[in-house]
Amino acid sequence: MQPVQEVYSKLNMVFDPELDQSLTELNFIDHVSTDRSNVTVVFRLPTYWCSPNFAYMMAEDIRDRVLELPWVKHVNVQLKDHHASEDINYGVTNRKAFSDSFPGVSSSSELKELRRKFREKAFLARQERLMHHLIKLDFNPKMLLKLTIGEMKKKIDLLYDDLTQSLWQKYLLIRSDMNQSNGDNHPAFTRMNGEPIEPNELESYLSNSKRIRLNMEFNAHQCRGLLAARYNLQKNKEMKI
C-alpha cells in the first residue's frame, strides 16, 4: 500500500461521534499528504459553525489513528473553513486538552463525558439497526434474545449477505469498544451494561433505540447535504437500509 492509502485506511476508523459514520464515508477528508514520517490530514465539516467539541474529538482521533502507523512520527491535523480552525489545529497538533484550547468553556471531564454519551447512543443505534434488519429477514425477535454470539455468527455467515455482515461487524466493534466480550458463549443481544433484555421489554426497548438511530440518520442526511452544498459535491441518493 502507498503511504497515503495507509493513512486513509486508518481514517476509515475515525467516526463522527454524533453521526456514527466514518469521516471517509462522510466525505469529511479534504486531502492527505505525506512527507517521509510526517503526515498532514486536512478535513472539513458541513458548516462553519459545527460544534468545536465534536470537531476536536474528530481531530484528536485522526491524530491518534494515524500515529498507529509505525512509520509515522508526526501528524499535522488541519480543520479548514471553521470558526475555531486555528484553536483546534493548534491544540490537537500540540496535544493540548480541549479545555486548554477553549478555556472557560469546557472542562476535560466534559469532553470525556460527551464521548461516553455518544458511544452509548452508537451502541443502541447499531444494535437496533441490526435487530431491525434481522427481524425484517424473518428472525423471531424473542428468539434473537436467546442466541449466543457464536450461534449468531453461524447464522449470519449462512445468509451470504454483505449488508447483514457489515451491520454485524459494526455491532461487534462497538461491543468491544464498550468492553463487552465477543466470545462465542456470550449472549448476542444484551443491554449495553451486559444485562439481559427481558422478552416482554423487547418492544419498548427497541422503539427507544429506534428514536436514537433515526435521529442519527436524520442528522447524517442533513450533514451530508450541507457538505455537498458547501463544497459543490454531488448529492447523495437516499440511503436505504
Binding site: P46, T47, Y48, W49, H83, Q222, G225, L226, A228, A229, R230, K235
Partner: peptide
Amino acid sequence: EYGAQFIDCFYDYHTSL
C-alpha cells in the same frame, strides 16, 4: 466574517434541501 458565514450557511441549507 461571522455575518458572511451565517448567511452562507443558510444558503447551503436552502440549496441542499
